[in-house]
């Protein structure tokens, strides 16, 4: 490869868009050509400056809330004759957003039995988000002795961590998550192509309970209390395999290890 060709391919190389053959040829050229190598270094310096956190604008904290309120108003507001008059419709959206917000404020002050339902939704959303945002684990390790200490200082409790690879549920890692206005531990397990999030946080009451199974948006959720902890397992795995998984977790959690 000569400098002219390299000049034409330099951006594609930097961006990882070259095919393997030309990628290798370009890398070889860089080794032998000081000028192109300097230019490449410059381009990388520019890139790292561009990718600094300082250049990324984050939305102000209220924006998500506003959007949610608008969408909820949109959903609640079924008949929409104002579609023909968009300017009216925007006003209407503003008013309904306010009404919805008020209703929400009032309703959340009353706090009826909507709580568990809201929690299953929260957990399902956390599960889906963890798969989507490329942020499945904060600590990726199949070693329980790496994952467990990772939570020290990140949560104010010690989640029991075990690898179930021998039973076909290898541990993938752990993640810090946020549910019910508190930090919780999320352990991630895999079953073939399916991921399981196991959320753990201290329970209000130290009682042990049986399993409660729910389905939400096509995901299976299993919930129980054990040894002072709240457990939620969620996955797109079928119910019976997810139950096998929770049985293993429960079986191995109950007896405190004795020397």
């Amino acid at each position: 490869m000569n400098c002219n060709e390299a000049q034409e391919l330099k951006h594609a190389y930097l961006d990882g868009e070259l095919d393997l053959v030309r990628n290798v040829a370009f890398a070889d050229h860089l080794k032998s050509c000081a000028a192109c190598s300097r230019a490449h270094q410059d381009a990388q310096n520019l890139r790292s400056a561009l990718r600094s956190e300082k250049l990324y604008f984050h939305p102000p904290p209220g924006l998500q809330k506003n959007i949610l309120a608008t969408l909820r108003a949109e959903t609640a507001d079924a008949p929409r004759p104002a579609l023909l008059f968009p300017w009216h419709w925007f006003k209407l959206a503003g008013i309904t957003a306010m009404v919805a917000l008020l209703a929400w404020v009032v309703a959340s002050g009353l706090k009826p039995s909507a709580r568990p339902d809201q929690l299953t939704q929260e957990i399902t959303s956390s599960h889906i988000r963890s798969l989507m945002a490329n942020h499945l684990t904060d600590v990726a390790s199949t070693d329980q002795h790496t994952v467990k200490p990772w939570f020290d200082g990140r949560v104010d409790f010690a989640p029991p961590v075990m690898d179930l690879a021998d039973h076909g549920f290898p541990l993938i890692g752990g993640r810090l998550d946020y549910l019910q206005n508190r930090s919780v531990a999320a352990l991630v397990y895999q079953r073939q192509k399916h991921f399981i999030n196991l959320f753990i946080w201290p329970a209000d009451a130290p009682a042990n309970t049986g399993e409660q199974t729910t389905t939400r948006n096509g995901y299976n959720l299993i919930h129980w209390y054990q040894s002072g902890m709240t457990y939620w397992a969620v996955s797109d795995l079928n119910r019976s395999e997810l139950q096998d998984f929770t049985q293993l977790i429960r079986g191995q959690t109950v007896p405190a290890p004795k020397p």
Binding site: Q64, I67, L68, R129, M132, A133
Partner: peptide
């Protein structure tokens, strides 16, 4: 809310 909102 699950598929689009996270990209805010």
């Amino acid at each position: 809310e699950v598929t689009i909102l996270p990209h805010l």
